[in-house]
Structures are given as C-alpha cells and as structure tokens.
C-alpha cells in the first residue's frame, strides 16, 4: 500500500525534501529522544563528579526556593538536602532499575516466547497458561509483594518489575516466532540440515526482533514509572534517593513548597518521554513497510 505521507509530498528543493523525509521516517523522534536520553545517562553517570557528597545529607537551610540561593539553584528540601543533587542521583537509581528490569523482562520474555512459539504443542499450552496467569494478577501488586518478600534494594526492585513485565515480551516474541516458524527461508534452512539452535538463533530470532527492539525502550520507560510509584509509597530502597521518594517526601509540604514535588516529576516525565520517542522512532524506522520501500 502506498504511504500517503510520501505520496502527498510535493516536489521541492532537495533540502526541504530531506527535512521532510527526516521528520516522517521516524528518525527525528529517534534522534531527539536518543539525544535527551543520552544526556540523562551522562548526567547520571557523572553524579559522583557533579555532586560528590551524599545527596541525603543536610547541607544548608531547609526549604530554600529554586533561585533563592546561587549555590543551590534548584532549592533545598524540608531536610535541607540539595534538590539538584537529589535529581542527579535519582536519575542513577531510575536508570539502573529501568535498564536492569528491562533486561530481566526481555530475557525471560525472549526465552519463554521463543520456546512457546517454536516448540508449540504442550510446551506452548503450558507457557500460554503461565503468561495468562501473570497477566491476570495486577502487576503493581505483584511487584509490591515481591519487594516485601526480599529487602527493598535496587536489585530486588528491578527483578520484581522485570518479573511483572515479561509476559508482554513473551506474547510478542511468541506471535513473531510462530509466524516465522514455517517461513520459506526457515524451511530452506531446515533442508540444509541446520540444527534447531542454529535455525532459532540464526534465522528466526533476527527476523523476529524488530518489533521487540522497539518494545525494549517502552519496557525501560514502564519500569521507571513503576519504580517511581513504588518509592513514592515508601517501598523503595531507603538508602537511595530516587525521584519517586522525593515526590513522596514532598507530599507533606505540597500546599506551599510545591516545587519539591514538581521538579522530580518533570525529571521522570522527561526521561520517560525520551524513551517513548526512541520507541516510536524505532517502530517507524524498523517497520517492514519502510524496509520494503525503495
């Protein structure tokens, strides 16, 4: 089918055409989202250089408003902690949980989805039931219970969020693998006498991955949102500053010192937005319709 956006493009200068193509093809959101996310990652990585002290330490007068003091441009909390330091160190916590949880969810989802999709039969039937089981439980409650079972450390939280997120990946991978299992190039590979492992890893998975890749950044984004909710409820790692816990602590002074709740919320929104932009861009760039187009 003809893509209307390309069809509607008027013949013009090559520069304008180039810009239009850049905007329509998904590369724009990919670039912008990627750049913002990279900037956040760099800031988080440099936390020790930027704010060497412990962000939970009291450093000055409590409840300075942003701009009130040159030394603390984003103000201080009711405990006299530097908000800017909290935001930068919070980025570390959010990114760690987001990436680790996405890795856990991706790994579990890939293994389960590939097994179910390729093997079929009773393995598929059992895995589909397990996926349905996990999707029937409210994921946030599941995460809260798992975190309560173990200590609320970043590792446990990531693991719990990953466990809640794998069914989405598994369903997607299963559907992809199922549709590719009888594809001609797979049959050809089978005729060549390739082993199952080689067919799955070398032939099926590379072709099944494009939609999964776009899901990865959504997984990270959702994990960051979930971690924020968790630490907002005081279920986060008590030794670590996170954006959610900053918002949670700001609830008590919301009526007057609302900047304490606004700033970390904006940080979450910016990070998650950048990841969603990357995902949207990747979906567009990796879509088969685009690859088929000349």
């Amino acid at each position: 089918m003809e893509r209307p956006m390309i069809a509607s493009r008027k013949l013009g200068s090559p520069v304008k055409d180039g810009i239009a193509f850049f905007k329509e093809s998904g590369y724009l959101s990919l670039t912008v989202g990627g750049a913002v996310f990279a900037a956040i990652v760099v800031t988080a990585a440099a936390a020790r250089l930027l704010f060497p002290g412990d962000p939970t330490d009291m450093v000055t007068t409590p409840l300075l408003w942003p701009g009130q003091s040159g030394l603390f441009p984003l103000g201080t909390t009711s405990l006299g902690q530097d908000v800017a330091a909290g935001l930068v160190w919070g980025a570390r916590a959010s990114l760690q949980v987001g990436i680790l949880a996405a890795a856990v969810g991706l790994l579990l989802g890939l293994v389960a989805g590939t097994l179910a999709g390729y093997c079929g039969g009773w393995i598929d039937a059992v895995l589909v039931r397990v996926i349905a089981l996990f999707q029937t439980m409210p994921p946030f409650l599941l995460v809260v219970v798992i975190v309560a079972i173990d200590e609320p450390t970043l590792r446990t939280i990531s693991l719990a969020i990953g466990l809640a997120g794998w069914p989405t990946v598994a369903r997607l991978v299963r559907a992809q693998v199922r549709s590719l299992r009888q594809a001609e190039f797979v049959l050809a590979a089978r005729c060549q006498g390739y082993g199952t492992t080689r067919i799955v890893l070398g032939e099926i998975l590379p072709n099944a991955l494009p939609p999964v890749i776009a899901t990865v950044s959504v997984l990270v984004a959702n994990a960051i949102l979930m971690e924020a909710g968790l630490s907002f409820l005081d279920m986060g790692d008590p030794n670590i500053v996170s954006w959610g816990s900053m918002i949670g602590a700001a609830r008590d002074t919301l009526r007057i010192d609302w900047y304490l709740a606004v700033l970390p919320g904006l940080a979450i929104a910016l990070t998650v937005l950048s990841l969603n932009l990357v995902s949207d861009g990747l979906t567009e760039v990796l879509s088969p319709r685009r690859r088929a187009a000349p």
């Binding site: 924020a228 919301l254 979450i268 929104a269 969603n276």
Partner: peptide, 16 residues
Amino acid sequence: MLIYSTPGFWIGLMMI
C-alpha cells in the same frame, strides 16, 4: 505522548 510519559500519581498531585 507527554501524558503517556508522566506518572499518574504525579498528575494527581498536580491536580490537587
């Protein structure tokens, strides 16, 4: 896209 990226509980606090 912005709403999709913002935690609901934070939107709730802002609404309050």
